[in-house]
């Protein structure tokens, strides 16, 4: 899974800490999300997409085999 969180976060000039506080998670959760090493709950994915003014399917990209 790839994410565009880092790219969109930079667009809105948010740090990882800012985004973590806005969606109510710990900073390391954002770090793992950006690395594509954590599959978030639908609720968290929705909250991040809302903060970054995008859609969930544009934020998380799944590569089919």
């Amino acid at each position: 899974m790839k994410t565009r969180i880092k790219e969109l976060r930079a667009r809105y000039d948010f740090t990882q800490e800012d985004l973590a506080k806005k969606v109510g998670v710990r900073r390391e959760t954002i770090v793992f999300l950006e690395k594509g090493k954590y599959n978030p709950s639908l609720r968290l994915a929705h909250d991040i997409a809302r903060i970054l003014k995008t859609r969930i399917d544009e934020l998380f990209i799944f590569e089919d085999n």
């Binding site: 109510g24 998670v25 959760t29």
Partner: peptide, 14 residues
Amino acid sequence: KDLREGYPLKDERS
């Protein structure tokens, strides 16, 4: 420290 900085003690990943 986490509470002062505004982070939750436990989130969905932890």
